[in-house]
Amino acid sequence: MSQLLEVNGISVTFDGFRAINNLSFNIGRAELRAIIGPNGAGKTTFMDIVTGKTKPDEGTVLWGEMSRNLIGMNEARIAQEGIGRKFQKPTVFEDQSVEDNLLMALRNNRRAFAVLFWKPTDADMNRVSELAAEIGLSNALGRKAGELSHGQKQWLEIGMLLAQEPKLLLVDEPAAGMTPEEREKTTDILVEAAKTRAVVVVEHDMEFVRRLNCKVTVLHEGSVLAEGSLDHVTANKQVIDVYLGR
């Protein structure tokens, strides 16, 4: 099976600090992957590079069947290619209703003129209701996003990501600040999503990662330290050293 995303030998330096060092990473079309690593391992920078926020000093990021290089594209272009990203802090548009938030994220023509004359079709409205049901916000469609609880905002953001219908979902610490029940629901949403697309989850919480039950990539000092099942990598000597300190 060909890979959806192939990251080859990327490096990036900030003021002499090598945040990412010759990192390579692959993920298939419908796969759930967790990335773990201590603070400063380069997890967020890695996401920044894939989504076009940061330009690497070297290396390539190849995408899709055509293996197009994503480096040099801007964030909006990459998002339109089918990469969705969820930030650590829930970022939804608090001044707008849940429905508006979802409508904005729906996969449609993103050009200014098209958006200006755009009217929601029945299909669009159905999709919004479906998504709202999926993230458990059916009753909150008319509410302002700012009024939601922290966990609801996280789900709304995931819902918006799903509405984009991305081929690859990058999720940064989705479980942070959630109650145990909320975590469970989040796990379900992510596992479900990974059935039809690639999902990369960055997470600190081992318990949460274990529940995802997927292949794990360990990052350390900007490069891949180990890869495999959670049990496999946690048995790795190097990984233990990194996490527990030498």
């Binding site: 909006a76 904005m104 958006v115």
Partner: peptide
């Protein structure tokens, strides 16, 4: 409210 978020939604 959040320029970066809009950008990651794919809007230019």
């Amino acid at each position: 409210d959040n320029e970066a978020r809009v950008r990651f939604l794919g809007y230019s």
